[in-house]
């Protein structure tokens, strides 16, 4: 059984304790308009193109059997004509063209992460399952994670919470040390509007998880201006967390750099805030959660 993965990011310091390797699994049940990792939204193959790196040698254009490449366009590939044969990716010596999906066997993925084990051990780090939504590939995780634990590696899951809890409990939970649980929009109608699904399942799963109380769960709120950062939404989350006796969370400030990723995939932007949070915005958010423990931003 294989995993479909977009990227493996080593030397990660922001997604769990210590020095970590982040694995970006492909596929996500949600469809958030601000998605920071648009290449992971589906399990499908894709080709990203980095115009900054390209030297316009046009070798890809010449080699494409479908004549689907035209460098006059910012994103040069006509995705309707492309069969993902990969000839262009192969010939690109600059690595400006890259596949977005890679298949990994359990052993292959273990080999990747094991390279940096010494760093995990010395810093209290480990691996973080990210995405997309790693739970989309829970059967793979069910095979992969026992192997990871054989090496004594710390495992953290970053999840949107939209998963089947039985599968989670059977295949994944026993091997986790820490869960980062994203809470986005409290009101169901808005959740539907901006994330493409109901949030009932997400809330139920969260409640079940903290009730089991077997591992650390850190709720995280991505701060998306005018979507999640409305006073109403944040206040609702605040009450919700208080009701569940939760005093610690993480607030993730908006990062506008994702917008450049979108054009690399030949897609168009669905949410176009291009600036970081202002100090005023930050202060307002912080004041809502003033009684909570969170990392300053």
């Amino acid at each position: 059984m294989n995993a479909t993965i977009t990227n493996i990011k080593r030397n990660a310091l922001d997604d769990g304790p210590g020095i970590r390797t982040l694995i970006f699994f492909k596929g996500c049940p949600l469809n958030c308009v601000w998605c920071q990792n648009p290449e992971t939204k589906t399990m499908n193959q894709g080709i990203s193109f980095d115009i900054e790196v390209c030297i316009k040698c046009l070798e890809c254009q010449e080699t494409c059997p479908e004549n689907a490449i035209n460098h006059l366009n910012i994103y040069p590939i006509d995705l309707n004509a492309c069969y993902y044969c990969g000839k262009c990716v192969e010939i690109c010596k600059m690595e400006a063209l890259r596949f977005t999906a890679f298949e990994y066997k359990v052993e292959e993925l273990i080999n990747e992460i094991i390279k940096d084990k010494v760093f995990y051990d010395n810093s209290g780090g480990g691996i973080t399952l990210s995405g997309g939504e790693a739970m989309m590939q829970f059967r793979f995780l069910g095979k992969f994670l026992p192997e990871v634990k054989k090496h004594g590696i710390h495992v953290c899951l970053e999840t949107c919470g939209y998963f089947d809890f039985v599968n989670f409990k059977n295949f994944v939970l026993p091997y986790l040390d820490l869960v980062y649980y994203d809470l986005k929009i409290f009101e169901n109608s808005f959740h539907n509007k901006y994330c493409g699904t109901d949030n009932n399942l997400i809330l139920h799963n969260f409640e079940k998880l903290i009730k089991i109380n077997s591992i650390d769960v850190l709720p995280r709120i991505p701060l998306i201006p005018n979507i999640t950062t409305t006073k109403k939404n944040l206040t609702q989350w605040k009450s919700y967390l208080e009701n569940h006796n939760i005093t610690k969370l993480e607030l993730l400030p908006y990062n506008p750099l994702w917008i450049s990723k979108i054009s690399k995939l030949g897609q168009s932007v669905s949410y176009n805030r291009t600036t970081w949070l202002t100090k005023q915005e930050k202060d307002e958010i912080k004041s809502i959660f003033s009684k909570f423990e969170f990392k300053n931003f």
Binding site: G18, I19, F119, D121, N122, S123, K295, F297
Partner: peptide
């Protein structure tokens, strides 16, 4: 700028000790 002294020490230690272990 927002890191605790503990976190900073921990990561510096992680890099240094790993470099030596390697």
């Amino acid at each position: 700028v927002n890191d605790s002294h503990e976190e900073t020490l921990n990561n510096f230690y992680g890099y240094t000790k790993s470099y030596f272990d390697l």
